[in-house]
Every structure is written in C-alpha cells, then in structure tokens.
C-alpha cells in the first residue's frame, strides 16, 4: 500500500517536472551570453531582453489584439449559448450542444486549411480581400474559442439551481433583470474561466493560424517558429520569461477579484 502511494507521488512529481522543467531551463537560458546554445555558457547577460520588443513587438501586438477580439466575440455569443443550453430543454438540444463543441474535436490544421481555401474562393468571386486579413484571423479564432466559453459557462450553471431564477421571476423581476441580477452573477466564475481559456487558445494557436497570416501580420507563435528555424538563441527564452512575468502578474491581480482555484475547477 505504501509502495502504491509512493508510486502515485512519483508520478505526480514526474508531471510537475514535465510541466516546469522546460520552463525553468528557459529561464536559465534567457541570461546566457552566447549566440548558440552552448553549455555551460561563458557568461551571463540581460541583453536578450532588450531585443524582444524590436524583434517581436509587431507579432506580439497582432497576437494580443487578435486574442482580445476573439475573446470579446466568443463571450458575446458563447455566454448566451451556455445559458440557453443550461436553461432550456427542446428537441435537437443535444445536436446543438454537439455542434457547439465540435470545433474542439477537429484538428486545427484541417480547419485552418479549409478556412484559407474558403477565403480564397470568396475572394475570387467577390471583391473582398479577406485572405490574410485580421478579421478573418479573428473569425477563425472565434470558431475555436467559442466551444471553451460555452463549455465552461454551461458547467458553471449546471451546479446552480434554476429555482433562484424562478423565485426572482415570481417576485416580479422582468426577464432581463433576472438575467442581469441572478443568472449572470451566478455564472461569473464560468465567464471568467471561459474568457481566460479563450484568450489562451487564441493567443497560442499555431496550427490553424499558420494558414491565416500575411506578410506584416504574423502572430507570436509563428514569428517564434520562423525565428527558431534559423537561430536557436536565448532571445526566444527571454520572451518566455517576459510572458511568464507579465501573465503571472495579471493572473495574481485577477485572483484578488475572482478566486482562480474556483474558476479553473
């Protein structure tokens, strides 16, 4: 029994190592004073951090705004969809639920190619120059971020008794007031989690976005991939560190308002 317990402990440690070892190594690499990965390094420097913005600023900006827009749109359509699935029973509900979650089960590289090809076809038949536009990228990202919003909103309402809403309605609250004062507050953690995951999914998407970039409009993951093709140096590691510090800080701030442990669970 003790052996079994130890085994579980070892496996959990393996998981922690698999997640954090590469990150820690990245932290270490980011201060190497080398232009190639040579171990051990001859010296340490912070100069890589100064090169992040000149080299990747544009890509970071594109990624950030695309993710923000995708989050906004997917919350706008995903939150009501979550409420609809949780609160209404109708014929075809299962089919709608399956459809809304379907983008999670289709490989992104397939959807990416499909969306690009569709955009080219539309472009040939109309005058709209949509392939390689930020709007198309956002629309494509909305497709993969919406299922996360729907899923997490639905989950947050599943544990919440609809009786509270009925009580509010029977006490004379109008439907919109019920929605605004009872339903939405009850699903606050689901909305925050949905927005958070939507941001992650959009910000780090590579496979789908590969087909949707244009000269002068690449996202961070693709810019990094292209950079790594020609040079493996500590600059990319410095980006990782900057991201961890920035995102970690933002999450800590967020944690004060919404308990993240509850949100993510």
């Amino acid at each position: 029994m003790n052996v079994r317990r130890n085994l579980a402990g070892v496996l959990a440690l393996c998981a922690v190592a698999m997640i954090f070892l590469p990150l820690l190594l990245t932290f270490y690499l980011s201060v190497f004073d080398e232009t190639l990965i040579v171990f051990p390094p001859h010296g340490y420097t912070l100069r890589w951090y100064a090169r992040i913005w000149p080299e990747f600023g544009a890509a970071l900006r594109t990624s950030f705004f695309a993710a923000l827009a995708a989050v906004a749109v997917s919350l706008l359509i995903g939150v009501p969809a979550g409420i609809g699935l949780a609160r209404y029973r109708f014929r075809g509900r299962d089919a709608v639920a399956t459809m809304l979650l379907a983008p999670l089960t289709v490989p992104g590289i397939a959807i990416g190619l499909g969306i690009f090809v569709l955009a080219v076809l539309i472009e040939e038949h109309t005058e709209w120059a949509i392939s390689g536009s930020l709007a198309l990228m956002v629309a494509a990202h909305v497709l993969i971020t919406t299922p996360w919003v729907v899923r997490l909103c639905l989950a947050s309402l599943a544990n919440h008794d609809a009786a509270a809403e009925e009580a509010a309605a029977s006490l004379g609250a109008r439907p919109l007031a019920v929605l605004w004062r009872v339903t939405l507050p009850a699903m606050r953690s689901g909305i925050v989690a949905g927005g958070l995951f939507a941001f992650i999914v959009s910000f780090e998407n590579l496979e789908m976005t590969l087909f949707l970039t244009a000269p002068g409009m690449t996202t961070l993951p693709i810019a990094v991939l292209q950079y790594l093709q020609y040079h493996i140096d500590p600059l990319v590691a410095a980006i990782a560190v900057a991201q961890v510090v920035f995102v970690g800080g933002a999450l800590m701030l967020l944690d004060r308002h919404v308990k993240l442990a509850q949100v993510v669970a």
Binding site: L23, L24, L25, L29, I37, I200, G248, A265
Partner: peptide, 25 residues
C-alpha cells in the same frame, strides 16, 4: 490557488516558446 495558477501559467506561454526549454536540454 497558487498551484492552480502555476499550472495555468505555462498555457499562456504557448507551445512554440516552451519548446525552447526542451531544445536546450
């Protein structure tokens, strides 16, 4: 809470950037 945050954090860094860690190893 902090542990959960630590698990979520790597997701934000993105798969491409996280690969660099394995590359040095």
């Amino acid at each position: 809470s902090l542990c959960m945050l630590a698990i979520v954090l790597p997701l934000f860094v993105g798969s491409t950037v996280r690969m660099v860690g394995w590359m040095i190893l």
